[in-house]
C-alpha cells in the first residue's frame, strides 16, 4: 500500500494523472517519487508535492491522507486497484476510468468519473457539477461502471450517459441526464429543473420532489416499483414520463407520487 500525504496546501492546480495504481504498479518508492506532475505550468516531481510512504510490497492500493482540492485527474484512466482519499479532491477524479475502485471520504469537485467506462467511485461527501459528464462538445458520456454519492451533486450531471448506474443519496441540481441515451440515474432527494432534457433513452428515477417536468415529456403510466439494477428495486409508486419528445426520445423519467403532489394533475391524462 502507498500512502500519499500532501506536503503543503497547493496554490495552483496540480495535474496528477500519474496517481493511479496502474502507474504505481511495480515501481519502488523512489521511482514513484520521481513521476512527473504539473503544478500550474511548472513541471514537478510527485515527491516534491507529496510525502510518499510505502507500507507493503504491493502497490495496488493508494491512500491519500489530507485535502487535495487542487489536485486533478487522480485515478485517470485506471484499470484496476484501489484509491482511498481521506479529504476533499479536485476535478476530473477517475476520468476515463475503466476498472478498480475509488473511495473518497470527503467532497469532490467537477467532472468526477467523466467518460468513465467501468469500475466504482464512492463519494461519501458531495460531488460538484458535471458528475460523469463528458467535456464540452463531446457526446461520449459514461459508458459503464457505477458511481455512488452519499451527499448532493451539482448541475449538468450524467450528460450523454450511455450505460452504468449513478446513485445519489442526496439532491441533484438542474439539467440532470442531459442528452442521456442509456443507463440509470437514481436520486433519493430533490432534483432541479429540466431533468432529462433531450434524453433519448435510459432511466432517471427521482424518489424526492421534482421541481417541474419539461413540456416535451408525456405521461405514460404509473408504476409501483422501479428496477435500478439486478440487486436493487425502489418502491414508489411513480409517475412514468416518456421523453424527450423533441428528440423523438424513448427515455423514462420516474417521479415519486408521494413527494410530488404538484404532478397529480397528470393523473387525469392517464
Amino acid at each position: 500500500m502507498i500512502v500519499l500525504t500532501p506536503l503543503r496546501k497547493f496554490q495552483f492546480p496540480v495535474m496528477a494523472e500519474c496517481i493511479s495504481p496502474d502507474v504505481f504498479q511495480g515501481k519502488s518508492r523512489d521511482e514513484i517519487a520521481s513521476l512527473t506532475v504539473y503544478e500550474g505550468n511548472r513541471r514537478k516531481k510527485l515527491g516534491n508535492l507529496f510525502k510518499i510512504e510505502k507500507e507493503s510490497a504491493e502497490n495496488l492500493k493508494i491512500t491519500i491522507k489530507g485535502d487535495v482540492n487542487e489536485v486533478r485527474r487522480i485515478g485517470s484512466g485506471m484499470k484496476s486497484g484501489e484509491i482511498m482519499v481521506f479529504g476533499n479532491v479536485g476535478m476530473h477524479l477517475g476520468h476515463k476510468m475503466e476498472g478498480g475502485k475509488i473511495t473518497v471520504h470527503g467532497d469532490v469537485d467537477g467532472w468526477a468519473g467523466s467518460e468513465m467506462k467501468g469500475g466504482l467511485i464512492e463519494i461519501q461527501g458531495n460531488a460538484g457539477n458535471y458528475l460523469a459528464s463528458p467535456y464540452r462538445g463531446s457526446s461520449v458520456g459514461m459508458r459503464g461502471g457505477r458511481i455512488v454519492v452519499s451527499g448532493n451533486i451539482g448541475t449538468d450531471s450524467g450528460a450523454s450517459m450511455q450505460k452504468g448506474v449513478i446513485k445519489i443519496h442526496g439532491k441533484a441540481g438542474h439539467f440532470l441526464g442531459f442528452r442521456m441515451r442509456g443507463g440509470v440515474i437514481h436520486v433519493e432527494k430533490d432534483v432541479g429543473d429540466r431533468a432529462g432534457a433531450c434524453m433519448t433513452g435510459g432511466k432517471i428515477v427521482v424518489s424526492g420532489s421534482l421541481e417541474s417536468i419539461l413540456p416535451t415529456f408525456t405521461i405514460d403510466k404509473m408504476k409501483p416499483k422501479v428496477k435500478i439494477d439486478q440487486n436493487e428495486k425502489v418502491t414508489g409508486p411513480f409517475y412514468v414520463f416518456l421523453g424527450d419528445r423533441s428528440e423523438n426520445g424513448k427515455g423514462k423519467l420516474f417521479a415519486s407520487k408521494a413527494a410530488n403532489p404538484h404532478l397529480s394533475s397528470f393523473e387525469k391524462l392517464l
Binding site: P134, Y135, R136, G137, S138, S139, V140
Partner: peptide
Amino acid sequence: LLRPEDHV
C-alpha cells in the same frame, strides 16, 4: 469552434 471534442 464547433468541435472542442475533436481537439481534446
